[in-house]
């Protein structure tokens, strides 16, 4: 038997956590909720790729829960922007209604200094989405680059990069986030900084995934063919190999969006995330927690929106996974 470490990595993932096993796992590959693009190679042929894409899209659109997820997410995103611009109150407006329960003027009530909670919750949604999309973009970019380089070039580059990934994986992510954000909070209030540190810790999953895909893809005939035709490494990676790994990348990016909202809200709950006067859902939950049984609207609305927001993204992610890989996990009809 070959040495396990030399074998392909076996990647398992759930919406919440992505775990990687480095072991002789080929017998198990594909069990569980693993993601791999199946159903033919893309080969860089545009026509075929397009039809492949259409098939995936078609599968995606035919899932009820995923569609509910998309609708909810889009609705929340649009609502947060619309409310931010057109609602009668901004989240910083200080009204004369103090601690009012929900009413027509303040649908989600007001807090003790007179902020309109509807405006605050929607501003929180907007901030969360902003942070999450930034994190996902950043994590995906870094992860794909590192994974592609490691998987394509192998050798010492691979070893070095993957040991670095190990280093990140060996520490509880939340603990490291707490450490980094505590340091960050001494320096700035900027949400971009927060997104940056979450992103720094989120790319390793994607990197492992892409690396595993690339390790197998580079042995494939079409890669050999491109090389024989004199294509540069860069071209082979970008034009021929990446399109074949796009499924898991997209699914993972979606899950990173959801995960980074979880991380952001947790850090904000700890007082290490978004700092007032900016708002995020996690911060609002933190501020409202003591009022859960008295001014319930200060707690219930942020909580509800937080859960619905994350859930909608999970549903999208799950739908995408199924669309890319219908054979694997038939989670629902």
């Amino acid at each position: 038997m070959p040495e396990p470490a030399a074998q392909e990595n076996f990647v398992i993932q759930t919406p919440e956590r992505v775990a990687t096993v480095e072991a002789g796992a080929h017998t198990l590959a594909g069990v569980g909720a693993g993601v791999e693009l199946s159903g033919g190679d893309v080969h860089g042929l545009s026509g075929e790729a397009k039809s492949q894409f259409q098939i995936v899209l078609n599968r995606f659109f035919h899932q009820r829960l995923a569609m509910i997820g998309v609708a909810t997410f889009v609705l929340l995103g649009i609502a947060s922007i619309v409310v931010g611009h057109f609602w009668q109150y901004s989240y910083t407006t200080i009204t004369n209604n103090l601690n009012d329960p929900p009413s027509w003027t303040n649908p989600f009530g007001t807090n003790s200094i007179g902020n309109d909670m509807f405006a605050q919750v929607m501003a929180g949604v907007e901030k969360d989405i902003e942070i999450a999309l930034t994190v996902a973009a950043m994590a995906t970019l870094i992860g794909v680059t590192v994974g592609a380089i490691a998987g394509f070039y192998r050798g010492w580059v691979d070893t070095l990069l993957m040991r670095f990934v190990d280093l990140v994986l060996v520490l509880p992510v939340l603990a490291v986030l707490i450490l980094l954000s505590a340091k960050l909070s001494k320096e700035s209030n900027n949400w971009l900084g927060l997104a940056f540190i979450i992103g720094i810790l989120s790319w390793t999953y994607v990197a492992r995934l892409v690396r595993a895909d690339f390790l197998s893809l580079r042995e494939r005939d079409f890669v050999e063919a491109s090389r024989a035709l004199g294509a540069t490494n860069r071209r082979i990676i970008v034009k021929h190999m990446l399109p074949n790994a796009v499924g898991p990348i997209i699914v993972n990016a979606t899950l990173t969006v959801a995960l980074s909202i979880v991380f952001e809200s947790t850090l904000s709950f700890l007082g290490l995330g978004v700092q007032p006067p900016a708002v995020s859902l996690g911060l609002l939950v933190d501020q409202g927690q003591d009022s859960a049984t008295t001014e319930w609207w200060l707690f219930v609305f942020p909580v509800a929106f937080l859960i619905v927001l994350i859930l909608s993204i999970f549903l999208i992610g799950d739908g995408l996974r199924e669309a890319f890989d219908p054979k694997k996990s038939r989670v629902r009809a």
């Binding site: 910083t92 003790s112 200094i113 700092q275 007032p276 006067p277």
Partner: peptide, 16 residues
């Protein structure tokens, strides 16, 4: 000081 709700609120009121 960060993490103090009343101070954060006071600052917001001061700002406005």
């Amino acid at each position: 000081t960060s993490g103090n709700t009343i101070r954060a609120q006071t600052e917001e009121l001061f700002q406005s």
